[in-house]
Simulated assay, not measured.
Amino acid sequence: MVSAPPVVVYPPDETGGRRVRVDGASLGRAYDLQDVARFLQEAGLQGWDEMDVVRSPLIEWRGGGPDVWQR
């Protein structure tokens, strides 16, 4: 059985923000890749940057990939 990725980035809302959750806990709303990387660093993934965010199989992008920030 394959488990769901622990990080979920939800579709952009009307302001272009995307909710970010790790293991079911909400980390906040990201407006770009740097925000996602910062949230993940705060969650314990020290040293992660924007390229790690784009390439990681741990992240499930809903409603568009890492290049989608507008509704």
Rank of each mutant, 00 (worst) to 15 (best):
M1S: 07
V2D: 04
V2E: 03
S3Y: 03
S3H: 06
S3W: 02
S3G: 08
S3A: 07
S3N: 07
S3D: 01
A4G: 05
P6V: 03
P6T: 05
V7H: 04
V7P: 01
V7R: 02
V8R: 05
V8C: 03
V9D: 00
V9N: 02
Y10N: 06
Y10R: 15
P12T: 11
P12K: 12
P12I: 08
D13Q: 07
D13L: 06
E14F: 09
G16P: 01
G16E: 02
G16Y: 04
G17L: 07
R18N: 11
R18S: 13
R19L: 03
R21L: 06
R21Y: 06
R21I: 04
R21F: 08
R21H: 14
V22K: 08
V22G: 00
D23P: 00
G24N: 10
A25W: 06
A25P: 00
A25M: 08
S26L: 01
G28C: 07
G28D: 02
A30Y: 00
A30K: 02
A30D: 01
Y31V: 08
D32V: 04
D32P: 05
L33S: 03
L33D: 00
Q34P: 00
D35H: 09
A37H: 07
A37L: 07
R38V: 02
R38E: 01
R38L: 06
F39W: 11
Q41S: 09
A43I: 00
A43M: 02
A43S: 11
G44C: 14
L45P: 00
L45I: 01
L45Q: 09
Q46K: 15
Q46A: 14
G47K: 13
G47L: 08
G47V: 12
W48Y: 15
E50S: 15
E50T: 15
M51D: 11
M51H: 13
M51I: 10
D52N: 14
D52E: 10
D52C: 10
V53D: 00
V54M: 14
V54P: 05
S56W: 01
S56C: 02
S56N: 03
S56L: 01
S56A: 07
P57Y: 11
P57E: 12
I59Y: 13
I59M: 14
I59S: 06
I59A: 14
I59H: 11
E60S: 14
E60H: 15
R62K: 15
R62M: 13
G63Q: 12
G63H: 12
G63V: 13
G64Y: 11
G64I: 10
G65C: 08
G65H: 11
G65W: 08
P66M: 09
P66W: 15
D67C: 07
V68F: 04
W69D: 03
W69Q: 11
Q70P: 06
Q70S: 15
